[in-house]
Structures are given as C-alpha cells and as structure tokens.
C-alpha cells in the first residue's frame, strides 16, 4: 500500500518549504503520492450584491483556473519531472477544515504544512490556520518552520 501525504500550498515561500519537505519524505518512503492542496479562503456566510451572486459561478471558475495555472500545476509538474507521484487540488473554503477533510477522504498518512506568515492582531483574534489544523487534525501533522 502506498503512502499518501497531503500538502497545504499558499502560493508563497512557506508553501514551497512544505513541498520541499514532503518531497524529501516521499523520496525516503519510496512508494508515496503527494497531494498538493491550494485553498481559496471562502465562507458561505459572507454578504454579496445580487450582481456578484449572478457572476459567482464564473468567478469561482476563474479563481480555480488562476490558482491551478500559477501555483498548483507548476508545483505538481516539478515533482512529476523528478519521478515523484503528485497531483493537485484547488478548493474553496476554510484552510484547516479542508486540509483535514481531504486527508480523511484520501486516507492520507499525514499532512505537511508550513508555519503561516500571518502574525499580529489577526492571528491573535482568529488564530492561525496552522494552529487550527494542528489542534483539530485527525492525522499526524508536520509543521515546517
């Protein structure tokens, strides 16, 4: 049975650190698939104008397309080029909840994420995604510094 690792991407430096750590793990394990997940923060309880609602389906497709093209596909292709099994997902929602859900659905062995770069008041009020995930995850979580 092959191992599966879910990796949280954020389109920045910390996501890349998570990928490179997961790549190291995959090389050590050998038979291992990497699932790269990019989450677009989105809440079903936000407020929108009628016009935004009417165009929402389009926007969503655009957002997914852009995330795939800019972040996920290049990362997946780089891994595949080096012979590592990898695929990418783009989802809307809450980062910590989604990573945990995908890990459960895919029966992944662990989640790798990097410590997020948010700090200051926002983190104090809302808590960081990383801290949320570590506290609530149902599989082991590796946090890359």
């Amino acid at each position: 049975m092959s191992a599966k690792i879910v990796i949280g991407l954020d389109g920045g430096g910390s996501g890349n650190r998570a990928v490179s750590h997961a790549r190291k793990l995959a090389t050590l394990i050998g038979d291992c698939e990497l699932i790269l997940v990019y989450v677009i923060e989105w809440s079903p309880y936000s407020f929108q104008t009628p016009e935004e609602n009417a165009e929402r389906h389009n926007r969503r497709e655009d957002e997914i397309g852009a995330a795939l093209a800019r972040v996920v596909t290049p990362a997946v292709e780089a891994l595949q080029k080096d012979g590592i099994a990898a695929r990418g997902l783009v989802k809307h929602g809450h980062v910590a909840k989604l990573l945990n859900r995908i890990a459960a659905e895919e029966a992944a062995d662990q989640i790798v994420i990097a410590r997020s770069s948010e700090d200051g008041i926002a983190e104090r009020v809302f808590g960081s995604s990383t801290a949320n995930l570590v506290m609530n995850a149902s599989v082991p979580v590796t946090v890359v510094g």
Binding site: W42, Y45, F47, Q48, H57, E63
Partner: peptide
C-alpha cells in the same frame, strides 16, 4: 448549509442568496 454539497463550495450558498 446542512444539505449543501461540499463540492459546491465557492458557489452562491443558500445563506448568501437569502442575505442578498
């Protein structure tokens, strides 16, 4: 959202339509 398909995340939710 108790009956909303998680794969529709990012689309207009019941809550959003009602709020609008």
């Amino acid at each position: 959202g108790a009956y909303s398909d998680p794969n529709d995340a990012g689309e207009v939710s019941h809550f959003q339509a009602l709020a609008t």
